[in-house]
Design a protein around this nucleic acid. Sequence first.
DNA 1: CTAAATGTTCTAGCTGCTAGAGGTTCAAGC
DNA 2: GCTTGAACCTCTAGCAGCTAGAACATTTAG
Lengths: 142, 142
Amino acid sequence: MLTIGSLGKKTGTKVQTIRYYEQIGLMPEPGRTEGGQRRYGDAEVDRLSFIRHARQLGFPLEAIRELLDLSDNPDRSCHEADSIARRQLKQVELRMDRLKALRTELKRMIHECSGGNTADCKVLEVLRDHSECLTDHDAIGA
Amino acid sequence: MLTIGSLGKKTGTKVQTIRYYEQIGLMPEPGRTEGGQRRYGDAEVDRLSFIRHARQLGFPLEAIRELLDLSDNPDRSCHEADSIARRQLKQVELRMDRLKALRTELKRMIHECSGGNTADCKVLEVLRDHSECLTDHDAIGA
DNA sequence: CTAAATGTTCTAGCTGCTAGAGGTTCAAGC
DNA sequence: GCTTGAACCTCTAGCAGCTAGAACATTTAG
């Protein structure tokens, strides 16, 4: 039986985060000691590892919830899991495209910096002048 | 003189967002009509465009605050603006590297999906098995 | 003069945690 | 058995960067 702290260490998760996952129903309510402390078993280690791994892959918690559902019902179609993963891949590729455009413009800004005072600073100038902007309008938060 | 709505349209910013920027001190408190409605001039259009453009480039609001400060004091060194931009470029490149790793693993998951039921779904299997994971541990939120 | 569009403030919510206060329990050493 | 200190507990609030909604006021066009 593991304490929440050792579960955290095993899975690379902060204690607060584990409690948060429990709160939002991603992790089950675990057993408790007489004194009220949480105790975990192997199933919880697996489940939390799954969650963390999916998070590292950028899956939002809601997608992970779906994936866990699928995982709990082994007779349901694999296609659902596959489509979640594909959705996620699309997101990743979209974000990459945006970042590429941003990188280009940032490099241009920096490359042109003359090193004088801000009156003729290219960085500020580029930011002031929207007309040469290559990035797409919804790129915020990318 | 522009209403907040037309300022929003001109700059591609939601009304609420403009008020939020005012609240956190990024935008100045504008003049008001007798009835208490905000009215904006050209300076505000420029300032908001600057902010939005920087946001599209992924600058956090605090960095934008610094950049606006620099912009307001044309005799200060351009190097500060340059270093903010360089910092931002580093962030962007970091995020790109992470996304690349994630994409690789997502592609592997999807590629191996057999299409049966979830009992032998590769997507779930990959998520369950951490050992082949290539991604770096801090990649969450990338 | 009226009605619709747009404005106002205020509060609360989103994602995914993280930090802190103020208190309790557990395990180890003596 | 007792003490100590680490780890646990709950609860609340905060982070970025908005976004949405309620409930009301103002403006503007017809």
